[in-house]
Design a protein around this nucleic acid. Structure first.
Length: 441
RNA sequence: GCGGAUAUGGUGAAGGGGUUAACACGGCGGAUUGUGGUUCCGUUAUGCUAGGGUUCGAAUCCCUAUAUCCGCCCCA
């Protein structure tokens, strides 16, 4: 053992056992199905891009966290999200795309940050975005919650709440308080309220704002509560004379109205003025989604509206709205909190067990017939004992086993065993497939 | 980038200077014939992250390195 290479993966890279992967893929497939149901088109972009493309925006943190390397004379990087590649894609293929462009992309992104709980270096993002040419109707902002609603209803991880805000409201509000230059810092602090609580937010704000009245009005503002209708009313009554504020308020009201038209149940979405979202490219509506029974998971799906997706690559003005589900993190947390659990160890419907000396042409003919009827079939080869093969069948958790020995071959039959109740019955080969089809349907 | 903790097999781990490194899970084999899950039996680390030191003797004490985990910062 000493002279062998230690088999290990890099920290922060998730790797699953088959039974876990089956579960993961179920969630992945559900998300994908809903995205497609709403008309989003599939898109796949390269994992590696030119560094100057990915770093066009060049934030300090991005540069620190990006996996970057040289190959020959090329300065390359692994994508750290799917939005920047989308920007590049839309700019590059502008003339070939029909707008509004709705696309989904569900694949891996990479970030070289220090891994910790729920923090990975390689993880799946499941993104949808809708990109408009010059303009994009506000009703699309309501489609995002409709999609989120459908996904998490289908996945049934329990009750959830889509929290909605509009960045313009916060921006306008801070401008009206003359806090324009420290706006970003304030947003960052407010965004932490779920994690650290109201009092800690107050303390943090004190560090950057002298005026206690000002801090109190911020706290009072972001904690305005009530029904969606109440909140809109309260915000109106503040009579803040700021164009951006009122624009945001009108947008929010309209988006809320449209969400209702999308027939999202009322208890699944709510205006929440504490939603700020750290990312500075969001300019209007912003979303976060939480599982009500597991608030400590944080946001499981978030996104928002941005004014111009492609400003670094073209002069075209392309506003958009999008959301993202961090699937790797979500999955690991769901598993950890026992919200989901492993239930399948194999995908097959039936396992064929040939006895030692049996004629393979009989066995493979059966397998072919089953597979032609879309029955997931596997065969357990080898000269191990029947006992051993039965053990294997029970280990992979398959419901049906077909035992084929010389008796079955001679009589043109199949011995079908139901592993869940230990009963078995012999069927004629000619009507075996039909019989099995009715059993597994 | 900053702080804290930990390091024993395929896995979870006990042992805190005295010789075969406990226990459990998993794996493999068996309890005679073409039948799994339960039970029982056998087997499964010449080795305790690496390097150095103290000692008659180190998984155990000391030093160094490395790795991992948990926080903070940040998070398109």
């Amino acid at each position: 053992m000493k002279n062998k290479i230690q088999p290990k993966t890099l920290p922060g890279f998730m790797e699953l056992l088959p039974s876990e992967q089956i579960l993961f893929n179920n969630i992945y497939d559900t998300i994908k199905r809903v995205y497609e149901k709403f008309g989003f088109l599939p898109l796949d972009t390269p994992v590696i891009e030119y560094s100057n493309i990915l770093l066009a925006k060049a934030g300090g943190e991005t540069e620190k966290q990006i996996y970057r390397f040289n190959k020959g004379d090329n300065d390359l990087s692994l994508r750290f999200d799917l939005t920047v590649p989308l920007s590049r894609y839309v700019s590059q293929h502008f003339q070939d795309i029909t707008f509004p462009f709705k696309r989904y992309q569900m694949s891996k992104v990479f970030r070289g940050e220090r891994p910790q709980k729920g923090r990975y270096r390689e993880f799946y993002q499941c993104d949808i975005d809708i990109i408009g040419n010059q303009t994009l109707p506000l009703i699309y902002d309501a489609e995002m919650p409709a999609v989120i609603y459908e996904i998490f209803k289908t996945l049934s991880f329990g009750p959830f709440i889509i929290r909605i805000n509009n960045r313009k409201i916060l921006n306008g509000f801070f401008d009206s308080l003359n806090l324009t230059d420290i706006k970003t810092d304030i947003l960052r602090i407010i965004d932490k309220i779920d994690k650290i609580g109201k009092e800690e937010v107050k303390k943090e704000l004190k560090k950057i704002i002298d005026d206690d009245n000002c801090i109190n009005s911020i706290i009072n503002f972001i904690t305005i509560d009530g029904s969606n209708y109440d909140i809109i009313n309260s915000l109106r009554k503040l009579n803040i004379d700021n164009e951006e504020y009122n624009c945001g308020l009108n947008e929010l009201e309209e988006v809320i109205k449209y969400i209702k038209l999308y027939q999202v149940e009322e208890e699944y979405y709510k205006i929440d003025l504490t939603i700020a979202r750290g990312l500075d490219y969001y300019t209007g509506t912003v979303y976060e989604t939480n599982l009500k029974e597991y608030p400590n998971l944080g946001s499981i799906c978030s996104g928002g509206r941005y004014d111009n997706l492609t400003e670094y690559y073209t002069d075209e003005k392309l506003p958009g709205v999008g959301i993202s589900i961090g699937l790797t993190r979500l999955f690991s947390q769901l598993l950890q909190e026992n919200i989901i659990s492993i239930n399948k160890k194999s995908l097959i419907d039936i396992l064929i067990i040939p006895m030692d000396d049996v004629d393979y042409s009989y066995v493979l003919n059966l397998a072919k017939k089953l597979r032609d009827n879309d029955i997931k079939t596997d065969i357990c080869y080898g000269n191990k004992s029947l006992k051993h093969k039965m053990k294997y069948a029970s280990k992979i958790n398959v419901k049906y086993v077909a035992i084929i020995g010389t008796d079955e071959v001679n009589n043109e039959t199949v011995m079908l065993k139901d592993m869940t109740n230990s009963t078995q019955q012999e069927y004629k080969l000619s009507d075996f497939v039909d019989k099995l089809l009715t059993l597994i349907s």
